[in-house]
Design a protein around this nucleic acid. Structure first.
Lengths: 237, 237
DNA sequence: TTGCCATAGTTAACGGCGTTCATTCTCCTA
DNA sequence: TAGGAGAATGAACGCCGTTAACTATGGCAA
C-alpha cells in the first residue's frame, strides 16, 4: 500500500496544485473567478490539460468544496477537543471556532455553506449517504448536545408536541447519527445549528451591516443566550 | 407630473420586459444564467441594445435585486396587516409569509439574501442610507417586536450585559429605526431575525436535507419556540 | 411642412470562457 | 529496446460582456 510510484506522486502533486490555485482564485475573485484557463495560465499549462485531472470545472469546484468541508470539520473538532470535558464549554468553543473560520474565509464559506451554485447542486443532492461531509461536520455538535442531555434535561418544546409534529420527519438525521438519539437532542441540535448558521452567514454575507457595526458582539450575546438554555440560568434582567 | 410621453411609456415597458426576462432566466437557470445575450435573444433584440437601459449586466442584476426586495417587503407587510392586532399573531404571520415566499422563490431568495455575488456587493455596501431596502424590510418586524415590548417585557439577556457589550455597536440600527428603541427590542429583533433567516435559508439552500425530510415541520417548531419566549409559556415538557 | 437631432437599435469586433478533438511528446514497462 | 499508456498541446466551436461605429426613426422646433 505504501511506495507510490513516481507517476502517482506527480499526479497527486499536480492535483493539489490545481485545487490550491482554484482556491486562490476563489478567495481573490469570488466563485465565478475560478476558471480552468486562469488556473492553467497560473500553472504554466493550457486549459485542456486539466481535463486529465477533473471531468469538468464543476467537478473541480465540487472537489474543492469537499476539501473545505473537511478542513472546517477538523477545525471544529479540534476546538472541541481542546475545550476540556464540559459539554457547555465545548459548545462555546465549537461555535466560536466555526465563526472564526467563516469570518476569516468568507469565500470558502460561501462556496460550501452559501447559496448552492447550479454546479454544486449535485454535491448537495448526494447528502443521502451517511458519510457525507455534512453529516460528519454535524457530528461533534450532535454528540456534545447529546452528552449534555444525558447530564441534565434542558428545556425544550413539549415532548408530546415534538413527537407529534417533528418525529416523523427526522429519519434522515437519525439514520446518520443512530436511531437512539432522543427527540429533545435532535431538536436542540437543529435549533442551535440553524441559529449559529443564520448569525454567522448573515455576518459573512454582510447582511447585518445595516444594523450592527460589530457582529462579534451580537454573536457573543446570542451564544450567551443559547448556552443559557442549557445552564438553566434565568434570562430575566 | 402625469401624462408620460409616448417615448417614456415605450422605454419603461422595455425596461420592465428586460427585468422580467432576466428574472425568468434567474429562475430557470440560476444567477449565472442571466446574460444580456440570452435576454436580448428572447426579446428579439441584440445584446448591445440593452446598454441603452442598463450600464452593465451587474447594474441590471442590481436593479432586479432591488425589485425583489420590494416585492418581499410588501408581502411581509401585507401578511402583518392581514393578521389582526395581536403582535404575536403578527409575528407568526410575517415569519410564515417570509418562509413561504422564500421557499416558492428560491432563486430570487438566493439573489437578494444569499451569498453576495461579486457584482451585487456594491448593492450591499450601500446599506448605509436609512431608506435602503434592507432597513425597510426589517421595519415591520421591528415595530411589532417593539409593540410587544410595550405590552409586556419578555425575557432577554440581562440589560446590564447588553448595555455593556452590545449597545455600542447598534448605532446603524438605531439611526435607521429611531434612537429610542430599547436595547431589549433591538436584541429580540436581531435574535429573531437571524434565527428566521438561518432556518429559512438552510431550507432554501437544501442544507437541511441530510437531517430533516420536512423542513416545514421544523420551521413550525422553531416558530413555536421563538414565540413562546414572548407569551411566557413554559417550554418544559 | 420641413429639417434636425436625440433616441433606439444594428453589425462587427475583441478578449475571455468551457469543452472537444486530433495530435505530439515522454516516461514506464514488458 | 519497442510499444503503449499517460500527459500535454494547439486549433476550433459556441457561448459570454463590452465597445465602437453606424443606421434608422419618431417627435419637436422653425
Amino acid at each position: 500500500m505504501s511506495a507510490p510510484t513516481r507517476r502517482e506522486r506527480l499526479r497527486t502533486s499536480t492535483l493539489t496544485e490545481i485545487k490550491d490555485e482554484a482556491r486562490r482564485l476563489l478567495v481573490t475573485g469570488g466563485p465565478d473567478a475560478i476558471s480552468l484557463r486562469a488556473i492553467a495560465r497560473e500553472m504554466g499549462m493550457t486549459a485542456p490539460a486539466i481535463y486529465r485531472y477533473f471531468d469538468s470545472l464543476d467537478a473541480l469546484v465540487e472537489a474543492l468544496a469537499g476539501d473545505l468541508y473537511i478542513e472546517l470539520s477538523e477545525i471544529v473538532s479540534a476546538a472541541k477537543h481542546d475545550a476540556g470535558d464540559d459539554p457547555v464549554t465545548q459548545i462555546i468553543a465549537m461555535a466560536r471556532a466555526f465563526r472564526e473560520w467563516s469570518v476569516a474565509h468568507p469565500a470558502e464559506f460561501a462556496l460550501i455553506l452559501g447559496s448552492p451554485l447550479p454546479g454544486i447542486v449535485a454535491f448537495q443532492e448526494s447528502c443521502d449517504d451517511a458519510d457525507h461531509p455534512g453529516v460528519e461536520f454535524g457530528r461533534p455538535f450532535m454528540e456534545t448536545i447529546n452528552a449534555l442531555w444525558l447530564r441534565e434535561q434542558y428545556p425544550t418544546p413539549p415532548r408530546s408536541l415534538m413527537e407529534e409534529r417533528l418525529a416523523a420527519h427526522l429519519e434522515p438525521l437519525r439514520s446518520g447519527h443512530g436511531e437512539e438519539v432522543p427527540i429533545e437532542v435532535a431538536w436542540a441540535f437543529l435549533s442551535g445549528w440553524t441559529r449559529l448558521y443564520g448569525l454567522v452567514s448573515m455576518e459573512v454575507f454582510h447582511h447585518l451591516r445595516w444594523a450592527v457595526s460589530d457582529p462579534g458582539a451580537l454573536f457573543e450575546m446570542e451564544l450567551h443566550s443559547y448556552v443559557g438554555q442549557f445552564t438553566g440560568r434565568s434570562d430575566k434582567s
